[in-house]
Design a protein around this nucleic acid. Structure first.
Lengths: 182, 182
DNA sequence: GATTCCATGTAAATGGTTACATGATTCT
DNA sequence: AGAATCATGTAACCATTTACATGGAATC
């Protein structure tokens, strides 16, 4: 996963490891975290594998290493991106994939988002069938909070569906934010 | 984290490792996963540390190992649970903590949920200040999907706030589900 | 002049997945 | 009879965190 995120960040630009980390923080930082201790060695192995190029540059007295995706790297990245969204991965990993969907040709993207919507609809049904057999009202204090997390999850699934429907049609994002009223 | 989840599952009951895994799947399985390869050795170390007891029992020709929290285990668990929600942990870990909030005395719980709400409100403000400077409409295809994940996150934060406000007052969960209309 | 940010990494420890291995019991 | 599920675990490997270590450049 990190492989693709790193490559995806330097598809068109040259960036240092430091820059990449900032990029990640500013974009998918809400749901995806990287540490230097993980990223720097990873950049090295990706370079060794021929998926990135690294060019050293002295700026003043400071050495900077700039990374950029190679043709092979781009190909690997696009193969991953074109593949169906990994349903076994965490929700965060799935989001990270969609983050790069702008790179995907519309035809493929539409198919993937459609598949994904169907999958989430199934998840919703699973949740609902569980919710159906679980008591909701007049609960003991001891049970209330446990069950409340189930309902959090249920709402979350609803929201993902709403989001996918929205982005499938590329509706203006300003219309997406639910105004916050108590 | 796994420590507390395992102990939390056997606070009052005796369960086998197998049972515990099922319990976890059925309760917090949406956002928390355990594997046998991780859980069984973990149960052993917790037993060695004196946080769990293990009693072996032959059922037919099959050996079962039943685990249960010791007084020390319960104490350790309650210390973790009473502490402020770990804001540096993943959202999933935070939810897992709230899952057990039924075990917490109301006074502590109310404080913790209040703190948590404030924290999430701050997160919301951070999101909103980012959202303010990011374009939403008339976006290039290439940029649309990247920014869309930001909006997903924004919505998510709204939902968490709604959820916390709701469970703080222990409102009946049947009233929580947002009816799904296109 | 000190603090913060830029910039690179290493090393130790811990955390966690996956595949493998085994066999009993229950359901169809 | 065969499949699914109950039940326990090990071992090899891979991923990840955290603390440490270093020093230049910019800001206050």
């Amino acid at each position: 996963m990190l492989d693709y995120i790193l490559i995806g960040m330097v598809l068109e630009t040259e960036l240092t490891g430091y820059d990449i980390k900032k990029e990640v923080e500013n974009s998918i930082g809400n749901f995806y975290k990287v540490s230097y201790g993980r990223m720097y060695p990873h950049l090295k192995t990706l370079t060794d594998k021929g998926l990135l190029t690294m060019t050293e540059q002295m700026e003043g007295k400071r050495l900077k290493r700039y990374y950029r995706a190679t043709t092979k790297g781009k190909k690997t990245f696009m193969e991953w991106l074109s593949a169906p969204i990994d349903l076994k991965a965490s929700g965060e990993a799935q989001l990270a994939q969609i983050f790069f969907y702008g790179e995907l040709p519309k035809e493929v993207r539409d198919i993937r988002l459609q598949e994904y919507e169907i999958y989430i609809q199934q998840t919703l049904m699973q949740y609902e069938s569980i919710a159906k057999v679980v008591p909701t009202d007049g609960l003991d204090e001891k049970d209330y909070y446990g069950i409340s997390t189930l309902y959090y999850g249920l709402q979350n699934v609803h929201n993902i569906i709403r989001w996918i429907k929205f982005i499938k049609e590329q509706k203006p994002l300003s219309k997406f934010i639910k105004p916050y009223n108590e």
